[in-house]
Design a protein around this nucleic acid. Structure first.
Length: 406
DNA sequence: AAAGCGGGGCG
DNA sequence: CGCCCAGCTTT
């Protein structure tokens, strides 16, 4: 029986792409904690949390925080009812802290407007705080298997290479092209009634059918594991035979690198004030403003963007309007920290104070800091406290990889 | 339309 | 050391 001829060759190529990627994903997908299914479906709440954490953040970073967050906030309602300070504390170290506040507000909006059930459609999802076009498409397709496209950095790169589309993912025209391309591909994955009938008569073929969920997640998984920015593993790529960039030897030129602004270098003068108590030491912290860098997080009192070089602890305390008596003057310690947008040189005076008027600041026991919302930059500074000088309590990834688990 | 926002791993 | 990452909101 002759196969009906297609109107043009593109649909055949695209169908082959969706099928090959779906099969590869089912065979090669990593076992990630937010991919665990209950009764054949992803947990919408776990998926929601993972999507927020994964915004501009690598999987390896999210893996360290995901399960502790879910243990602390097991349900959407539990998250919605929690105080924001605890949500920020559980987010501590993940960066982009606005996401934590938006996730919190998102959970509250879902409870209020959708009876505590994550909505299934893109328009409803996209109205929620912190959910843009990508995250709405990801929830709709991956959790609810709807034929909605998604485009992130990974997907844009894969699609550009697939069609040898030049340009950078920072170009609006490239992004717009990628959304069109992703949409036309994912729509080929929606199961038509006749296909569903066929699948029920041939259940052994069911796992072969391309679904929006497997195709979309396959695009991202391929970008993460195979079609990487540098040194892509074309020899193991399931789409190699369909890839225009590979055929034309353009893989290393697509996508074009994204222009990036230079990092600003700034100095912060930090007063790491501590005092002894009967059983512990305490450290003086203040809360940052609710917007901007490290919004609402706790830190030692500091002069930011310090212009002039301060030479004594006393002069810093005076600038900070802290009425304290240093037990002794010490030289500042240097500590550098980088974010994407700036390089911060901390000058840290470690000051044991006999007497302090804390004003708006608060004393915290050193043992309570792990439950507080503090950036990784400032956690590193707190490691300079005398109580921590002999035992490193911030364990690096390298530490964990090389130390035996006792 | 453009800027702002963390943090770390990797080549 | 530069580049990149499962983006979104604000200005």
């Amino acid at each position: 029986m002759p196969k009906p001829s297609a109107p043009n060759p593109a649909p055949d190529r695209d169908r082959a792409i969706t099928l090959a990627l779906t099969r590869w994903f089912h065979a090669s997908a990593r076992d990630l904690p937010w991919r665990h299914e209950l009764r054949g479906q992803r947990d919408p709440y776990r998926s929601l949390v993972s999507e927020f954490m994964l915004q501009q953040t690598q999987v390896s970073r999210v893996l360290e925080k995901f399960e502790p967050f879910l243990t602390r906030f097991p349900t959407l309602t539990a998250l919605a009812e929690a105080p924001e300070s605890e949500v920020l504390a559980a987010w501590s170290g993940l960066g982009y802290y606005r996401r934590a506040r938006l996730l919190h507000a998102c959970a509250q909006a879902i409870v209020r407007d959708f009876h505590a059930a994550v909505p299934r459609d893109v328009p409803s999802l996209q109205q929620l705080p912190g959910i843009g076009r990508y995250t709405a498409g990801a929830i709709a397709s991956i959790v609810f298997d709807q034929p909605e496209p998604i485009v992130d950095g990974n997907v844009c790169r894969v699609l550009q290479r697939l069609d040898a589309k030049p340009g950078s993912a920072s170009q609006k025209d490239v992004i717009a092209w990628a959304w069109q391309r992703a949409e036309s591909l994912v729509k080929l994955c929606s199961v038509s009634p006749s296909q569903r009938e066929g699948a029920s008569r041939h259940p052994e073929k069911a796992s072969d059918a391309a679904t929006p969920a497997a195709f979309n997640e396959g695009l991202m998984e391929l970008g993460a594991l195979v079609c990487t920015p540098a040194a892509p593993k074309c020899h193991t790529c399931p789409l190699r035979d369909h890839c225009a960039a590979h055929a034309q030897a353009l893989v290393d030129d697509i996508p074009a690198p994204k222009p990036r602004a230079a990092r600003a270098r700034v100095h912060h003068d930090v007063a790491l004030l501590w005092r002894r108590t009967a059983s512990d030491i305490e450290v003086l912290l203040e809360q940052r403003p609710a917007s901007g860098l490290w919004a609402s997080l706790w830190q030692p009192p500091a002069i930011e963007n310090a212009k002039k070089l301060r030479r004594t602890a006393s002069s810093l305390l005076e600038a900070l309007a802290i009425d304290a008596v240093p037990v002794q003057e010490t030289k500042p310690r240097s500590s550098a920290f980088q974010t994407t947008h700036r390089e911060i040189r901390f000058r840290v005076w470690i000051i044991e104070a006999a007497k302090v008027n804390p004003a708006a600041r608060r004393w915290f026991p050193a043992t309570s800091l792990s439950a507080l919302a503090i950036s990784n930059a400032h956690r590193a500074l707190l490691e300079l406290l005398p109580a921590n000088s002999s035992k490193p309590s911030v364990q690096t990834r390298r530490d964990r990889a090389t130390s035996s688990s006792a």
